[in-house]
Amino acid sequence: MLPALLLFTGLFVGLFTPQGVRPDAFLTAAMVSAAALLSLRGTVLIGVGACASFVGLTVDFNALREATAYSELATLTAVAAFAVFLNRLLDRSARRLVEVRSVAEAAQLAVLHPVPRRLGHVTLESLYHSAAAEARIGGDLYEAMRTPSGVRLLIGDVRGKGLLAVQTAATLLSAFREAAHDAPDLPHLARRLETSMSRRASRYPEVPGSEISERFITAILAEIPDDEPVVRIVTCGHPPPLLLHRDEVRELQPADPSPPLNLGVLVNDGYHVDLAPFHPGDQLLLYTDGVTETRDCSGAFYPLAERVRSWSGEAPHRLLDHLHRDLIAYSGGELDDDIAALVARRSPSR
């Protein structure tokens, strides 16, 4: 409505103000705003309307004989032509942006598959939000797979941003999907992932910004066996998951955390497995640090455990819906970091 409002304002100024007050500025603004906001047809109509309005006002004031009238009309006509040209450029850019978004969505689906809603006795739901709004993909990752050992989960966060982070995330996800089925336990699985990431790091040492400090991945591996009401967890430098049991929310702090993946040279005694009860109806919330590092207007971090407590009885998809909306509200609508979360809920045995 802005171009039309500016056009009618110009007409009002021309009709109801002294002759010395010119409407040209409003008519010009109407045409330029139309180029940015309207279609080609709308831009042409506003341009024609602006020029016709000026001619009508000039006739109404018997000013056709003034030399300035023709120069002003020529200027408005040139602006109208430029507005059409600008509209075409913006339209081309918009189409390219749509194509980029489509490619980014396809890339995200190829790298970060949607998790199944159900794997055996476990109900799952995931949340992903990229800080790069147009790219829609970043360095946070998650995966869930059913294996002979039960349901195995992965959540991770690649240090750094951009294409290198996406490539590293893709490598880790590919390694997890391959190794999760046949690794006998979580420590073996963690070592397989560490080997894959170290191999990739040594293969591309010349990539700018790919020093080892920029290529490690914090991660959590979790295993929910079919025949035991427990969850097994290996923590590799990642924020601790939350266990939601009835109205209780408990951080599962690791007894002996391991360093992030790709820093396996620091692991001397292997990977430690933490065990926690996981009964029917319990939920496990895995998340990346983008969740807990979200800040409000005063700079305070998001109190995840406190906020989640009121939603602990919700189904996984509703819990993550609440979490996503609350994060947006808490940050004032400006989530400036990648966010990933994964909820697993054990269903009652049949």
Score class of each variant (00 low, 15 high):
61 F>Q: 12
257 P>Y: 11
326 D>R: 06
112 L>Q: 07
65 R>F: 07
113 H>M: 09
97 L>W: 01
310 S>W: 03
333 G>K: 00
6 L>C: 07
292 T>H: 05
227 D>Y: 01
129 H>Q: 10
205 P>M: 02
320 L>W: 00
72 E>P: 04
248 E>S: 11
189 L>G: 02
5 L>R: 13
185 D>F: 12
49 G>A: 15
154 L>H: 05
77 T>Q: 10
72 E>F: 06
8 F>R: 08
114 P>A: 04
224 I>D: 03
23 P>C: 15
322 H>Q: 15
327 L>A: 10
285 L>T: 06
191 R>E: 15
216 F>M: 11
188 H>W: 07
20 G>D: 15
295 R>N: 00
290 G>E: 00
26 F>W: 14
267 V>D: 05
37 L>P: 06
22 R>C: 00
63 A>H: 12
87 N>T: 11
32 V>F: 12
13 V>R: 09
73 L>S: 09
126 S>L: 02
156 G>R: 07
205 P>L: 05
189 L>F: 12
205 P>K: 04
29 A>S: 03
175 A>W: 15
300 A>N: 11
339 I>K: 00
343 V>N: 00
11 L>R: 08
188 H>A: 15
78 A>V: 04
118 R>G: 05
340 A>F: 02
25 A>N: 11
277 P>H: 04
248 E>D: 13
71 S>A: 11
259 P>T: 11
41 R>D: 15
164 L>M: 09
80 A>N: 12
295 R>K: 08
103 V>D: 11
9 T>K: 10
119 L>I: 05
20 G>V: 13
71 S>W: 08
164 L>T: 07
47 G>Q: 06
327 L>E: 06
327 L>R: 02
37 L>F: 09
4 A>N: 01
295 R>M: 06
65 R>L: 13
14 G>P: 03
350 R>T: 14
327 L>G: 09
345 R>G: 00
289 D>Q: 04
261 L>Y: 02
132 A>M: 07
233 I>G: 04
210 S>I: 09
72 E>W: 01
290 G>V: 01
314 E>T: 12
14 G>R: 09
61 F>E: 09
52 A>M: 11
298 S>Q: 12
102 S>M: 10
99 E>G: 15
254 P>Y: 00
149 S>W: 00
173 L>M: 09
272 H>L: 07
265 V>P: 01
275 L>F: 05
325 R>I: 01
152 R>H: 02
193 L>N: 13
209 G>M: 02
182 D>L: 06
249 V>P: 14
